[in-house]
């Protein structure tokens, strides 16, 4: 088949095993320096708390979940994970620029679905991930990756169940991707 064209069209990513070793070393250094792993969804949590605190301070104060993250001396945005997540964005920019992947705004999807379907699915997926990451005490980087690396039983549990569920439901959503 058109194997040749395929290979040419494929973006140049680094060898996944090499990427994995690099990621593992980043994780190791993070543990060495900070004593805890990486994370990503915590920054969005801080953003949520900040927004609610700005818009309706009383409401945020009453909410038992958000209250824990509000302090008088500084904004919830002044948080390790927020800085780290901002770093993730910059790192993505650097790598994207280096490998020439920064292009104009675009939507990536299967050719069989419309843009609207893709965005709708992405939004729902985001909402589910947001809710799930709170129950799971972290998302794929915080719980599954860092948790498992620090031999946490919960981390292993989240990793196995998250990917397991993915495989179970993947069949029903195959239109979205292939």
């Amino acid at each position: 088949m058109n194997q040749e064209i395929d290979i040419q069209d494929r973006p140049k990513y680094i060898n996944p095993y090499f990427g994995g070793v690099l990621l593992g070393l980043v994780l190791l250094i993070t543990f060495y320096i900070t004593g805890r792993g990486l994370g990503a969804s915590g920054a969005v949590k801080s953003a949520v708390v900040t927004t609610v605190d700005k818009v309706a301070p009383d409401h945020a104060e009453q909410n038992t979940y958000m209250k824990a993250f509000i302090t008088d001396d500084h904004s919830p945005m002044f948080n390790w994970l927020v800085f780290e997540s901002f770093g993730i964005f910059i790192g993505g920019l650097l790598s994207g620029a280096l490998f020439g992947r920064i292009k104009k705004l675009r939507i990536e999807k299967s050719p069989n679905i419309t843009n609207k379907t893709r965005l709708f699915a992405a939004g729902i997926g985001g909402i589910l991930f947001g809710i799930g990451s709170q129950f799971g005490r972290g998302c794929s980087s915080g719980a599954a990756l860092s948790g498992t690396a620090s031999s946490s039983f919960g981390g292993l549990l989240v990793m196995l169940l998250m990917f397991g569920t993915g495989y179970v439901v993947a069949y029903f959503f195959r239109k979205l991707w292939i």
Binding site: L38, G39, A40, S41, A68, G138, G142, A143
Partner: peptide, 9 residues
């Protein structure tokens, strides 16, 4: 939990 603020990923 004292660690609550550290939760999340």
């Amino acid at each position: 939990k004292a660690k609550a603020a550290e939760g999340g990923c």
